[in-house]
Nucleic acid binder design. Sequence first.
DNA 1: CGGACCATTGACCATAGTCAACCGCCGTGG
DNA 2: CCACGGCGGTTGACTATGGTCAATGGTCCG
Lengths: 252, 252
Amino acid sequence: MSRIGDKPKIMSLSDVILKKLGRHSKLDAQSKAAIRRLTCQVHELSPGEDFVRHGERPRSAAVVLEGVVARYGALQKGRRQYLSVHFPGEWPDARSLFLKRMDHSVCAMGNATLCAIPHDELLKIFRAHPRVAFAVWRETLIDAAISREAITNVSARDGVTRLAHFFSEIFHRLAAMSLVENGVCDFPFSQSQLGELLGMSLASTNRHLTALRASGALEFLHGRITIRDQAFLAKQGEFDPLYMQDGIQSGH
Amino acid sequence: MSRIGDKPKIMSLSDVILKKLGRHSKLDAQSKAAIRRLTCQVHELSPGEDFVRHGERPRSAAVVLEGVVARYGALQKGRRQYLSVHFPGEWPDARSLFLKRMDHSVCAMGNATLCAIPHDELLKIFRAHPRVAFAVWRETLIDAAISREAITNVSARDGVTRLAHFFSEIFHRLAAMSLVENGVCDFPFSQSQLGELLGMSLASTNRHLTALRASGALEFLHGRITIRDQAFLAKQGEFDPLYMQDGIQSGH
DNA sequence: CGGACCATTGACCATAGTCAACCGCCGTGG
DNA sequence: CCACGGCGGTTGACTATGGTCAATGGTCCG
């Protein structure tokens, strides 16, 4: 599976975590050192493979190292509702840190690598270094804000707007982690899965996608997004990145 | 404005917080004592009054003491998208603890009382008593789970199912805080606002509500819900309370 | 008494869902 | 090597759910 640029960019767990947390939180040397001492178990997942399932009680929490994973829940007739997508540095099952049972599943979309960090170890760090706890907490609050925005997206915006908003968000998030090159980024979803993520049928997804492509703003084919006109997309999607709250937030 | 039973149930801030946190977190005596020492500023809101607005940078975080408040965002043409509702003991603007600017507004639905606790004070407690931090964090994770469930609700369930699911959740949450009496609880929303919360028009809301009422499972009129058949509602709404994760979670 | 708000209902319309057919690509197996 | 099947993408025809608009009645309040 080739990735954009095919660079074997081997970031370590702590590099990824520090890069992501560093987007919004200021960490002192001690906190960084503590994060560097984290141990974890690496999981390589194939496309579609589940990482954790609804109802399970994980004893560790994972950070995405590479690739894309998604949360999902089951609907009637084998259908799925994808709830969110997660890129390197994110914590798709942070919930498990404080809530015993998973209320959703997490699976890899393309190939993906995750690092599972034992809860014990994280809690120990949180106690010893509140700054780290606050940074990860902040991360989970941004995740929550993204979910809230999704509510508005699926319930109040029509098909084209919904897609435009979604792609704007994805582009924004990937760019923040330097995962966009010349407007191109990996996003290993089929149109059918995209529909299950945005609450529309395959047919509508395809038609609205065709319309967007016709506007020249973006392309999406075979798990790869090409953004040609970010401003147009943002406008079309009524996209305002405030909810993702980029930039350092405060001293704590 | 009379409330169910008209009892002047004056719970103090710490009583409300401890009752709510106690649903899922075990707090030691020191943590409880620290919470009891919290100071706050009480805000009495009238129906529809905003507590905090999109874009603002609060210096305190609020806990609902009494009544119902809701998060909302603005849509085109003065319409709103209500994002979530909050009952006593909940933290509608917990986001502000770690993210500077609000990405949504919070308003009172009926009359409501909130307690604003300065961020400084909370952070100090979090540092000194990690258990308190973890309990509030847990609270915000449950809040996030409720938002995720809302995604499924508005994007995958038809009108009647959506309403049934929503009322099941509300009933469950209010019952947990002893705010239901004989199946009756206050829920100061008009049908129009309920529509803006569940992503449907006033007309649909009314029609589906009429259908539900015809089934005898519930009534909803003038801001008051009466649940007559909880089991039926849960079934009709495909409701599984797992996501709210009731009960003590663990020692930390 | 008039106005505002809420609830209700009917008529009409539009967006999006369902179903089905077709194409191209790719990997497998005869 | 080619035939086949599966999957992803594309498109058309039909349908249905729910949105829009409009009118009505009730209640509360100034």
